[in-house]
Design a protein around this nucleic acid. Structure first.
Lengths: 348, 348
DNA sequence: GTTAGCACTCAATCGTATTGAGTGCTAACA
DNA sequence: TGTTAGCACTCAATACGATTGAGTGCTAAC
C-alpha cells in the first residue's frame, strides 16, 4: 500500500481537467492536450512529470506506452469525492422535471415516469426501484367471488396502492359471508402494518376460540396468504433507456454488453447494488469494479434513495459508462429522487 | 416480374437443405457443402447450375462472387409457406410448458411467464401483447376516500382484472355516500361492456332528472373518467430475453442493434406489427423487410394470437434473426398461445 | 523545479501478397 | 438434353511489412 502522499494543488487541478476531458470525449489525454485544456501555462514535459506521479499514486494509467492517460477507478473515486463541486439544478429545470411527475398518477405510472425522465435527460439508462413495502399500512380489503372455489382478493395498502390476488377456497362462500369477513378485517386492522396484522392473525388462529366461527378462520387464512405473497414480490425495479448504453465506445464488446443486459433482466445483481444504496443517506456512486460484480465493470451507478414520510422507501438512479458526466448527472439524480418522494408523499 | 416458373422437386429439395444449413450455422452455403448435406448423389457443378436458377427466381443470393448462397426474404417466405412441415410438439413438452403457466397467477404474472417461457425455450426475444380490453365486462367498482378531494377508485373487469385510479372531486363525500354510489353502479351495470356503460351513463347525465341526486351525477362522472382512461392504456406488451438477440452474428452492427432496441422501448412499431398479426387466424410470420419497418430488417417475427372465450384477445410470439429455426419455433409459439389462452380462460 | 531535446514505443493505418472457398463457363460425356 | 469434369476467375479474409504519428520517459541544461 502506497504511503498517502499529499497531492499538490496544481496536480489536482491538472487531474481534474484530465478527467473532465476524458469524460467529454473518451480519448486518452496526452500531456500536450492537457497543457492546452488546463490553461495553466505549463510545458508538456512538466505535465508529463506530474502525470508520472499521478500514475504512481494510482489515479491514472495509460492503455499503452504511446497513449495519453486515463483515469483509474481510484481516480474517478478521488474525482467525485473531493474534486467535484456539484451545482444544484436551476429552478427552471426543476420545474420542468416536476411537470413530468404527475402526483395524481398511480404508483406504477409515477415510477415509470421517473425512470424515463432519468434516462431521457441523462441519455443513460434510468432505473427506479419499487418502494419497500415493509412499513406499509393496511387500509382496506375486499373479497369478490369468482367461482365456487375461487375468490378475488383486493386490498389497498399505503392509502393508494392496490394489490390483488386469486385465492382458492375449500367450499363456496355466500356474498354476505364474504362481506362479513371483509368488514371484520377492515374494522379490526385498518391502519396497521402487515407484520402486526400477521402476528395478530396468527394469534387469533392459535387461540381459535370457537366464538370465531369457521368461516372467519378461513378469512384469516386467506388474508394471511394474500399478505404472505407481498413480501416476496417486494424486490423489483423499472429500467429504461438501456439502449442508450450502446452508444458508448467502451461498450462495443458485444459479449460484455450481452452479459450486462442479461444482468438487467435477471435483476438480482442490480437489486443487491440498489439495496446497498438504499442504506446511504444521499447520492451514492458506484464506480466500475466497486460494485463487486464483474458484469458491471466499466459501468458506473449514480443513485439516490427517495423517501416517503421521512423514511427511505426506495432507490433510483442511472447506469452509464464509468466516464459518465458526474457533475451533470449527480444533481439530476438527486432532484429526481426528491421529486419522486414528494410526488409519492402527495399521493397519500 | 419474373414468370412463375415451376421449380423442380429436386431443386426444392436442394433449396430446403440450403435453408436448413444456413439456419443452422449462419454461413453462406456452397455447392460442395450442399452436395454433401443433401445426400442426393449430385456433382457440385450440377448443384451450381440449379443454384443459378434459384438465384434467377429470387430465392437465393450470394453476398459476393466467391461466397456460397444465402436465402433471400422471398426464399424464406417460400420455405416457410410450402417447404416446411411443422411437427406438433410432443405431449411431454406441452406439459412442461403448461406447468410454467400457473392459471392461478394474476394477469400480469401470466403474461410475464408466457414471455419468459418463449424467450428461454427459443433463445430468442419473447413478447406477449396485453389482451385487448374492448370486449371486457364490468364486474365491480368501489370508492375509497383518500383525502377531502381525492378518491381512490378500484374496479374489476373481466372477472379478475383489477384496475385503479385516483380521481379528484370538488367536495368531500361521506363514506356512506360513496358506498351508495358504488352500490348503484354495481347493481345497475354489472356484466355490461364499458361501451354500453359509457353510453348509458352519458344518457343518464343528459336526462339529468332531478330524482338522480347531485352526488349520483358526480359518481357517474367519476366512473366515466375512470373508464375513459382504460381505452388509452390498452396497447402495451411484455418483452423478454432481448439480450438473446445479441448472440447472432448478423446483429453485430451496434448502430442497427441500438435502433432495434430503441424500437422495442418506443413500442409503437412493434405494436403495429402485433396488431396486424392479431387479425390473422393462426401462426403468422413476418420475415425481414416484410414488416415494413427499416429497423426490423434482418429480423423475423413468429406470432400467434391467443384467444379468450373464443375471441382473439391478444398476440404473442418471438423475435429473432431472419435465419431463426422456424421449424422448431413455430410449434412452440403455437402451443404457447393456446396454453396462455387456456390459462386465461381458466381464470374467469 | 522546469523545460527543451531526443530517442523510443506502440497502436493505427495502409498497401501488398497470399490463400482459399466458391463461382461461372466451356467442352465433353451419357 | 441433362450432367459433369476442368479451369480460369473473383473476392473476402488473412497475414505481413512499412509508415505514421501521438505520446512517452529520460537526460541535460536552465
Amino acid at each position: 500500500m502506497a504511503k498517502e502522499t499529499a497531492i499538490s494543488v496544481r496536480a489536482q487541478q491538472l487531474f481534474k481537467t484530465l478527467v473532465e476531458r476524458y469524460i467529454h470525449d473518451g480519448q486518452p489525454v496526452g500531456s500536450a492536450a492537457l497543457v492546452e485544456a488546463s490553461g495553466l501555462g505549463l510545458s508538456p514535459a512538466t505535465v508529463r512529470n506530474i502525470m508520472s506521479d499521478l500514475e504512481k499514486l494510482g489515479l491514472v494509467m495509460s492503455p499503452h506506452t504511446s497513449a495519453g492517460r486515463v483515469p483509474t477507478t481510484q481516480g474517478y473515486r478521488f474525482f467525485v469525492d473531493t474534486l467535484l463541486s456539484v451545482e444544484p439544478l436551476d429552478e427552471r429545470q426543476v420545474h420542468k422535471f416536476m411537470s413530468e411527475l404527475d402526483p395524481d398518477d398511480n404508483l406504477s405510472g409515477l415510477l415509470h415516469s421517473a425512470s424515463t425522465l432519468l434516462s431521457s435527460v441523462t441519455r443513460l439508462a434510468g432505473m427506479v426501484m419499487l418502494p419497500r413495502r415493509e412499513q406499509s399500512t393496511f387500509r382496506h380489503i375486499e373479497f369478490l367471488p369468482l367461482s365456487d372455489n375461487r375468490i378475488l382478493v383486493i386490498w389497498v395498502i399505503n392509502e393508494q396502492e392496490v394489490q390483488n390476488r386469486i385465492v382458492i377456497i375449500d367450499r363456496p362462500w355466500s356474498p354476505s359471508e364474504l362481506q362479513q369477513a371483509a368488514n371484520y378485517l377492515n374494522a379490526e386492522f385498518a391502519g396497521q402494518s402487515p407484520q402486526a396484522i400477521r402476528s395478530a392473525l396468527l394469534k387469533e388462529l392459535r387461540s381459535a376460540r370457537k366464538s370465531v366461527n369457521d368461516f372467519m378462520i378461513t378469512a384469516v387464512e386467506m388474508a394471511e396468504r394474500a399478505f404472505g405473497e407481498q413480501q416476496e414480490q417486494a424486490d423489483d425495479y423499472v429500467l429504461d433507456g438501456q439502449s442508450n448504453l450502446m452508444k458508448y465506445a467502451e461498450m462495443a464488446d458485444m459479449e460484455k454488453l450481452q452479459r450486462l443486459f442479461d444482468a438487467f433482466e435477471r435483476k438480482h445483481k442490480l437489486l443487491n447494488l440498489l439495496d446497498q444504496a438504499a442504506s446511504a443517506q444521499g447520492v451514492q456512486i458506484f464506480i466500475g469494479e466497486e460494485s463487486g460484480y464483474q458484469v458491471f465493470d466499466g459501468c458506473s451507478f449514480v443513485t439516490a434513495p427517495y423517501s416517503v414520510e421521512g423514511k427511505t422507501a426506495g432507490v433510483l438512479g442511472v447506469i452509464g459508462p464509468t466516464r459518465l458526466n458526474y457533475e451533470r448527472v449527480i444533481p439530476i439524480v438527486d432532484v429526481t429522487a426528491k421529486l419522486l418522494g414528494a410526488a409519492l408523499n402527495n399521493n397519500r
